[in-house]
Simulated scan of single mutants.
Amino acid sequence: MTNQLLTFKLNDNLFAFEVFKVQEVLEYSEPVKIPCASPYVKGLINSRGTGITTVDLRKKFLLPEAEPTKDTRIIIVEVNKPTDENPDHISTFGAIVDSVMEVLETDSNNIEQPPKFGNIISPEFISGLSKKDDQFIIILNERAIFAQNEQKL
């Protein structure tokens, strides 16, 4: 089976979300601040008439901060967040990234389990690893990244 991955850069590392979980990619615009939000929550943006919470993935992953550039993008990601009333509930979040690269196709047999330690980010945020040429692609677990009841890392 083939997986499509939307690849992007953060701090010169290559990451990806599975394409079917991505709603759209937007040019960066400064989010409206949310009082008392977690430090990695940048704020709200308006997308298609809906307020979307945006997360600075650099801050979330404890990477060095960087000012937005002309290449900075917000990836709108759909996350399955079941509720008691609706087990199929989908929430939408924005992920601020340094730049979006390309959509890659990879065979699911080429996706490896991530190592349990030694990662640049917490292993719970990683769903797998793939490779392009000689560079690893860290495939992210959007449910863990955008969890409401997360634990301190």
Rank of each mutant, 00 (worst) to 15 (best):
L62Q: 12
I139N: 01
A95N: 07
F117N: 12
I74N: 03
D56Q: 11
S130H: 05
V41P: 11
Q4S: 15
E124H: 11
A95T: 06
Q113F: 07
T83Q: 02
K132I: 12
D12E: 13
P82V: 10
L5F: 00
N46W: 04
F8A: 04
I96L: 02
N11Y: 03
E78F: 01
V41W: 02
V25K: 03
I34F: 05
E18P: 10
T72G: 12
K152R: 09
V32H: 15
L5T: 08
S99A: 13
Y28N: 10
I74R: 01
E24W: 00
K70F: 09
R58F: 00
L63W: 01
L62D: 15
T53D: 04
Y28E: 13
K70N: 15
S47F: 01
N80H: 14
N80I: 13
F125W: 09
G128L: 03
S99K: 08
L14E: 02
I138M: 04
F93M: 11
P68M: 07
R143F: 01
A16L: 07
Q151A: 10
L57H: 01
E105I: 07
D133L: 07
P68K: 12
I52F: 00
H89C: 10
S99G: 14
E142I: 06
F117V: 10
H89K: 11
R58N: 05
P87V: 10
D12N: 15
I120Y: 02
A37L: 11
D98H: 01
S38V: 09
V79C: 06
K59C: 07
P87R: 12
T69N: 09
L26E: 02
P68E: 05
D133C: 03
K81W: 00
E65N: 12
E67G: 10
S99C: 07
S99P: 14
V22G: 07
V100I: 04
V103G: 07
A37I: 15
G43A: 13
V103D: 13
I138F: 00
Y40L: 11
E102G: 04
K152H: 09
N46R: 15
L26T: 04
E105T: 12
N110F: 03
F15K: 06
P39C: 09
L5D: 01
L104K: 08
F125D: 03
S127T: 13
Q135N: 07
I121S: 03
N141V: 05
I120S: 04
V22C: 10
N149H: 09
